[in-house]
Design a protein around this nucleic acid. Structure first.
Lengths: 139, 139
DNA sequence: TGACTTTTCGCAAATCGTTCTCATTATCAT
DNA sequence: ATGATAATGAGAACGATTTGCGAAAAGTCA
């Protein structure tokens, strides 16, 4: 149901112009099961519409991020990696050997974070929790 | 006891040449109670030794990081911020209004992280936990 | 559909923090 | 002191991202 046509409708609802390039980028994000970088998104979008440019990818991602449609992750090393928002909140575990990104969520940790911040006199606006590890070699 | 002279001794022990610039940078780190950026470190080090250059600051920080003497934090926005290692492990809470960095530690969260990773079949190599918040305005 | 206004686009140049090159200088064991 | 070698300063180079600008599309209204 939340197909490309739906995404298009959502864009219009926000008074944003629907362009071929934007649809191509959104399509890429919808299809992605990994957490692609801007460069990956550009390459994949070009398959659908060769006219998409780097600048447009960045501009569109920034715009979608502000709109809350995509999440921008700045993991360790290289550039940012993106994912479509929409699901439930989650944190990430990055496989140091493969670069694979695994999503997880812990209500307990979230609660503890809020407690800690409260004790220090703060309200959390957002947080970043990333675990970097490797799968132990079979022995 | 862990004064500049001590730091110098440590450097020599690792077979590293002790230069004026390196001592100046280490001195800055020792005096810093905040989490300065490379640029701040450069400016402060220049007070003690005007000959220190940007390149040397980065080279020295990279070297000290590898040696485990300093910790490099890549918080949201701008560039990396550094701190002398040596204390106990801790995570950070960044004040979104002032940029101030507050350190905290939670054994419970650490434990939960390890559990989660284990459940997913991973050993954590390191992690990054940052809380971004603001002090609620008095009302 | 055509004429018009506004947004978006592609391209190339500009940023920004950081890293590298390389000729010169400083450190340290002798 | 002297040489072998490592470290330095200045500036160019880098990689990811952003921006300025004239051209090309999208949305509007008749």
């Amino acid at each position: 149901m939340n197909d490309d046509a739906q995404l298009e409708t959502d864009l219009r609802a926000e008074g944003v112009r629907v362009t071929r390039q934007r649809l191509a980028i959104l399509h890429v994000l919808r299809m992605a099961s990994d957490h692609p970088r801007a460069e990956d998104i550009l390459n994949r979008a070009k398959v659908q519409d060769p006219s998409v440019s780097q600048a447009t990818v960045y501009r569109t991602l920034a715009m979608l991020e502000k709109a809350g449609t995509v999440l921008k992750n700045e993991f360790d090393g290289a550039g940012a990696r993106y994912e479509l928002a929409g699901g439930a909140h989650h944190d990430h575990l990055i496989d140091l050997d493969t670069g694979e990104v695994i999503e997880f969520h812990s209500q307990k940790i979230e609660r503890l974070q809020a407690e800690i911040a409260a004790d220090l006199g703060y309200d959390i606006e957002w947080h970043r929790l990333e675990l970097y590890g490797r799968r132990p070699k079979a022995r």
